[in-house]
Nucleic acid binder design. Structure first.
Lengths: 204, 204
DNA sequence: TAACCTACCAAACACTTGTTAGGGAAGGAG
DNA sequence: CTCCTTCCCTAACAAGTGTTTGGTAGGTTA
């Protein structure tokens, strides 16, 4: 039989979808096997354990995400553009790894305790540093308001971006870029009407 | 032995905390019993099943939440004040029912399928109607911008409010009202600096 | 005193869980 | 053809799951 290396990836994708839909603990390996078209025991030819499937799903997602983030952060953009680039990159990753993002959101909190998933805590600290630095340099440069609690703002911005994974459906009426644009417009300019909105387009 | 009706409530609160921390499916009835100071089987003197504990936690939370929402919606406030009142009420409920909110967020999506938890879908439809009507009437009255997708805005606002339950800790440095104020300021006015922020406090 | 109720324990139940062991079918390589 | 690798199945395992049953300590009521 010829090797089909795509099979492993395919099983992992279906596992991610089931995990995202039902939750990791609520998902049985038999459900994954059913969805992937094989029997429960056969999963263990491809993977060590149920937990290592989860591990691989989350770690590959975070690795790819940080490649994008690092590119943005290394570009040396001005705070406003840096914020926009981070947000846009995030929505693109949600588009690409919707299931992984949903799993990350649901499970990461109680996984960070386990040593095996220590990289989750690392990633979270990295997020906080990247976002906080962007916001703080924006405050210093006069791009952002000075009267808002930066840490609160960070949490709001972070959460709103990532929970989008819970309702976003690829191929829907909004592209990731369009969602990012609307979101940035709301966060930067606010939803309240003011004069500038009556006369011209507020995008960037 | 004298009846202690507080015991049932106490066990339910303990269960809510464990559910919120570990997830419903990942929590065993023995863990709940340990945390509450009795044995697993003894839980079934107070409750029919593990599921009915979850049911009672979520339904009492939603009932109380909708009492507050209905009060706000019936007050006939102008859109901006109505939005502010809804947000503030939400943060107050997060303060009061942090565990229940966390559980609701994590589990509601895959519970809505079960007939027993049909009220979750009802509540969600109610949220959508309440928020959308507030936003739309604000657009119509000229309080809010007309160039934003109302449905997207609704999702952003809704999600950001409720995910706050994941990081909010009662007794911390921010009161629910303070968080609501900062959040409203961000959503309404945006984080970008503009002239009005240099001269006066933006909190209306 | 006796009957009764509340709140719990001890022990088991049937079932599901993740995981393993051994085997076998199908194709490629020699 | 024969060997070998890949991929999967069948069948079972031990541990853990939610739940039930019968019993009992101790306070309340009569």
């Amino acid at each position: 039989m010829r090797p089909a290396p795509g099979r492993r990836r395919q099983i992992l994708d279906t596992a991610a979808r089931v995990f995202a839909a039902q939750g990791y603990d609520a998902t049985t390996v038999r459900q994954i096997a059913d969805a992937a078209g094989l029997l429960a025991g056969s999963l263990y030819y491809h993977f060590d354990s149920k937990e290592s499937m989860l591990d691989e799903i989350l770690s590959t997602f975070l690795t790819e995400l940080w490649e994008r983030y690092d590119t943005v952060l290394a570009a040396g953009l001005r705070p406003r553009e840096s914020l926009a680039a981070l947000v846009t990159a995030s929505f693109r990753e949600i588009d690409r790894h919707r299931a992984a993002v949903a799993i990350y959101q649901k499970e990461s909190r109680h996984l960070t305790d386990q040593p095996r998933f220590g990289y989750l805590a690392d990633a979270q600290r990295g997020f906080e540093r990247a976002w906080l630095r962007t916001l703080e340099s924006g405050v210093a440069s006069g791009d952002f308001r000075t009267d808002l609690d930066v840490r609160l703002t960070y949490r709001f911005v972070r959460d709103t971006v990532w929970v989008a994974a819970s309702w976003y459906r690829p191929g829907g009426q909004h592209s990731p870029e369009e969602i990012a644009r609307q979101y940035l417009s709301m966060v930067l300019e606010g939803v309240a009407l003011r004069d500038s909105h009556r006369t011209h387009d507020p995008h960037d």
